[in-house]
Amino acid sequence: MNPRSLPSVHTPPRWEPATLARCHDLGSDVRLFEVRPDSGATAPYTPGSHLPLQLEFDGHPQTRHYSLLEEAGDAGVYRFAVKRLVHSRGGSEHLWQLAPGDKLTIAGPANHFPLSFANPEYLLIAGGIGITPLYGMALALHRAGKRLRLIYVSRDSAREHFATALSALGAALEVYPDSASAAPAIQRAVAALDPAGEAYICGPAGLRRHVRALWEAEARPPWALRYETFANGGERPEETFEVSVRNLGISFEVPPHRSLLESLIDHDIEALYDCQRGECGLCAVDVVSHEGSIDHRDVYFSARQHAADDKLCTCVSRIAGHGRVVIDTRRQGIRD
């Protein structure tokens, strides 16, 4: 076993040293972080951008991405808000242990979730801490005089902070405490959205699935539904599960803070991958059999393909229920 960090083959980040300038609790479990690049220069970025951080915990170097809040840049700092998630991949717990003055490794902001300004109307739907990329988008659209609606579903302790910060939106902002109370509003908003409008979602997988189903029911073009995945936010908590690689005769456990892809590579099993966000499908392997349920967290496979349960994206998907899975890593490609 040889733990290592998986470099992105897609856009190799240029890492640079930085310092945690300040942290500030926005609620009991949501903390604002201000990170100052040691070079003193923050790069400009557009709404929807995230900051890559290289962290080291559990003995592994790990890369995490956090959506930038819009106000950053003015004071030579990058600002992002993180929710503490105990049953997650460990990034937030690690950040919680940091104190101002601690050293960090960051890369310049990148944007995989770019906002257009050319559409006649915008619907933004945020779930929980998923507000962070949409926050800057909403303010930018508002300033540009665009028609927009932001539905913010959250029980987060930081909800009031964000709602107050977005008060300039007036009636365009709707805040709901949970998905049940938000469901009618989301349904109405999707139905009423201009046919040439776009929707942007950031939030848990369940919210994304819910909106995607409404979107398809309205026969709207799939590319007008914009979302970002952060390789987290599955239906089920992160648990240890057991993997057997049938073609190699190797078995091992995947711990909660490690992806199946990372574990494969830790065990010197050659694996193809690219995006590490469940988008490109290159890391998908055949599922020979499984016990427990497959928590499909990718957006590469269609609902039909997920239901078949015969492939899974190793970079994000997991087995829930302390289960096990037998995979075969020899084959890529599509099969009906």
Binding site: E228, E279, C280, V299, Y300, F301, S302, I334
Partner: peptide, 10 residues
């Protein structure tokens, strides 16, 4: 050759 579209693609 795929049933979905990568949401980052633009």
């Amino acid at each position: 050759s795929q049933e979905t579209i990568n949401p980052a693609a633009c």
